[in-house]
C-alpha cells in the first residue's frame, strides 16, 4: 500500500466573526450573505474585539446569535438611537446597526434620519427586501407599486398606500452624512461590490469621518413566493428600476481619505 500524502490548502472558510451557528433565515434569503460580508470585513480589519452590533426587530432580530461580537438588541426602529448612545459613550469602538426596511424606513424613520443629520460616526447596514419578512410578508414602505403582499392583497395601490421610499437617496440628501450607497445581493458581481461598500463604510467609521449607510437590495423568497433563483431574478427585474444602484453620497473627506 502506498500512503497517500495530501497537502490541504484552505481556500474558503467561515469568517471568525461569524459564530458556528445555523442561522434562522429562510433558504435562499440574502441575510446570510449580508452577515457573511460584514463578518469578512470585521475579520479583515481585525476589529472583532472593538466592534459592537445593534440588532433590529425583524428577521434579523437574532443577528446577535450569528456574530461573534458584543451585541445589543434594540426596540423596533430604534437601533440608530441606541447606536448613538453606545458610540457617544465609547467613541473608539466600531458600532454598526443592522436593520430591515420596516425597522429603518417605517417605524425608525426619525431615528435613522436624525442619526444621519448628526453625522453619528456609525455604520448602518440596511437590508431592503420590499416587505416585512418576519411578520409574514406585509407591505413595507419599500414595497413596489402593484406588489402583492399579505396587507396589499391586490397589489400596492399608490393612491391609497403611497409610493416606495428611496432611502439611500433620502439619507444622502442630508448634509451630515458621509457615505451613502446602494448595492444589491442578487449575483456574485454585485455581492463583491456590496462587500467593498461595507468595508468602506467601516473604514469611514475608523477614520472618524461620520455617518455611513449601505443599502443592500435583498431577496425574500418565502414571502415573495418564489424559488431562490427566481427571487434573484425578480429583484433584478423589479427592484433595480425603482432602487437604482449607485453611490449617492461620498463626502470629499471620504474621497480624499482614499478608501
Amino acid at each position: 500500500m502506498t500512503e497517500l500524502q495530501y497537502k490541504e490548502t484552505v481556500v474558503f472558510e467561515r469568517p471568525t466573526a461569524l459564530t458556528p451557528t445555523q442561522t434562522t433565515y429562510c433558504p435562499g434569503c440574502t441575510h446570510g450573505v449580508a452577515h457573511r460580508l460584514i463578518a469578512e470585513v470585521i475579520d479583515e480589519m481585525g476589529i472583532r474585539d472593538d466592534t459592537i452590533g445593534v440588532a433590529p426587530v425583524g428577521c434579523a432580530v437574532f443577528a446577535y446569535r450569528f456574530f461573534d461580537v458584543d451585541f445589543v438588541e434594540a426596540a423596533h426602529g430604534r437601533a440608530p438611537a441606541m447606536a448613538t448612545g453606545i458610540k457617544r459613550s465609547l467613541p473608539d469602538r466600531f458600532v454598526f446597526t443592522y436593520q430591515g426596511d420596516g425597522d429603518l424606513v417605517s417605524i425608525g424613520m426619525a431615528e435613522i434620519t436624525h442619526a444621519a443629520a448628526r453625522g453619528e460616526n456609525i455604520t448602518v447596514i440596511f437590508i431592503n427586501n420590499a416587505n416585512y419578512g418576519m411578520t409574514g410578508g406585509q407591505m413595507a414602505p419599500t414595497t413596489l407599486p402593484g406588489q402583492k403582499t399579505t396587507s396589499s392583497p391586490t397589489g400596492r395601490d399608490v393612491e391609497l398606500a403611497g409610493y416606495p421610499i428611496q432611502m439611500a437617496e433620502l439619507i444622502a440628501s442630508i448634509q451630515g452624512t458621509s457615505y451613502v450607497v446602494r448595492r444589491s445581493l442578487h449575483d456574485a458581481r454585485n455581492i463583491r461590490q456590496a462587500k467593498k461598500a461595507i468595508r468602506t463604510a467601516f473604514e469611514v467609521q475608523k477614520r472618524g469621518l461620520g455617518f455611513a449607510m449601505v443599502e443592500l437590495l435583498s431577496t425574500c423568497p418565502t414571502n415573495w413566493h418564489l424559488t431562490p433563483p427566481d427571487a434573484m431574478n425578480w429583484l433584478k427585474e423589479n427592484m433595480l428600476p425603482v432602487y437604482p444602484l449607485g453611490d449617492y453620497k461620498i463626502h470629499d473627506a471620504v474621497k480624499s481619505a482614499g478608501i
Partner: peptide
C-alpha cells in the same frame, strides 16, 4: 435627541456600556 423616544433609546445604548 430628535424626540423622547430617541432620547430614551440613546440612554439605553449608553447605559449598556
Amino acid at each position: 435627541a430628535e424626540s423622547e423616544l430617541g432620547a430614551i433609546n440613546m440612554v439605553y445604548g449608553s447605559a449598556c456600556t
